[in-house]
Amino acid sequence: MGITARGVGLLVAAVVLLGVGFRYAYPELAVLGVAAAVAVGYALVSAAWRPRLTVERVADPDRVARGEPAAMTLTVRNAGRLRAANLVAEDRCGGALVPVPLLRLRPGHDTEVRYDVPTRRRGVVPVGPLRVTRRDPLGLVALARSYGDSVPVWVHPRIHPLAAVPTGSGRSLDGRTDSVPHGSITFDSLREYVVGDELRRVHWRTSARVGELMVRENVDTSLPRIVVVLDNRVSAHPHRLAGVAESFESACEAAASVLAAAVREDLPVSLLLVAPAHDEPAGVTGPLDRLAAVELTDGGKLTDGREDSLRTAMTRLRQERLGDTLVFLTGPGARADLGPVGALRGAYPSLVIGVFGAAEPTPPGAAGLLVVDAADAAEFAAEWDGIRRW
């Protein structure tokens, strides 16, 4: 609860009038002082009334690509039974405030407001809670309360269509590694027949032995597995334009494009951040949500000046071998850190490095290291489709 400047002035006047009136026996001044004190008391009681409001929000849709339209529908209902609500309300949408008219909202009735959610930038836009300000008729006291929960709108990076997808690698018995564009089917196990299984997969010899139909389970042992590594260190994206690292935004869009292309081809794909997020927001349901929420962070320095998070990420990639195709996306500030990335060539047969926002071409370094320099994600998509050999 806050007393306005008018309320402070009237309260001071009440104290002065009462003091002077009683001290010097001026009943008129004392009466004025009592009237001022009563007005302030009435204002406190009037503003302290808490209206019973219920707030519902519906995001349409709650997940969009950057630049696509999104809207929020806000429904406010007066759940009280005695009096209408005349309030000043504002809904918080990201960093802006949206006015919500609540004039003569009768008991049992509701009002609906629909407004656009800004999607110009990638990120998670929190919408809400509704802030309702209650004022007395004289404008002496103002009391603000919050109603409803905050609802996030996920603004994903833009996706640029990619026609090309990496190929997998299958090892032959003689030790050679062959390119396998669509994987290979290998027997894995037997299980009981269920309605809908193809009869050509029935293993008749085993079925005759056990007395019931058994079918073969096959797995794709050499299906291409793609690992997308996004460099989210501050040092990798040093340049800012209006507070935004455009090279990092382009890297996020490139990561989303590779993920979408892999999902389209039913290929296993995973997303890894160089510097893991410490406070990932609730409600993340997939890699696109992670890309919407990811922010630049300090990777941490060791005594020798190397990035601690980069070394940790490279060690994990080397030890776990999460796939056979590694896509490393970074900015101009990490061009000197590509040596440890190139050292993963032995663990990952296909290795692609995307550098965004560099003023000049990046040297390939180790033999066979494929580096794609691009100003933005659209240029990266064009270069990606031009890769002839993974």
Rank of each mutant, 00 (worst) to 15 (best):
T4R: 11
P268M: 05
D308Q: 10
R345S: 15
R104S: 12
Y193R: 01
F187T: 00
P276E: 02
L241N: 06
G368K: 00
A347D: 12
D308L: 14
P224F: 08
L199D: 06
P118D: 14
E280T: 13
G9Q: 08
R240I: 06
W384L: 02
G67L: 07
A242N: 14
G368E: 00
E383R: 15
A374L: 04
G283W: 14
V352K: 04
R205Y: 00
L351K: 00
A70D: 03
A36T: 00
P161A: 13
G286D: 09
R209K: 10
V180T: 10
L369P: 00
S222W: 10
R264W: 09
L369M: 02
G139H: 06
D289R: 02
G123F: 05
P268Q: 03
L74M: 08
V195E: 15
V20T: 11
R191K: 12
V15K: 04
V155G: 08
N78T: 01
G339W: 04
A277T: 11
L87Q: 04
S179K: 08
R389S: 09
D231Q: 08
A375C: 06
A251R: 03
G33F: 07
A164F: 06
V234W: 04
P276R: 01
V20I: 09
T75C: 07
T285F: 08
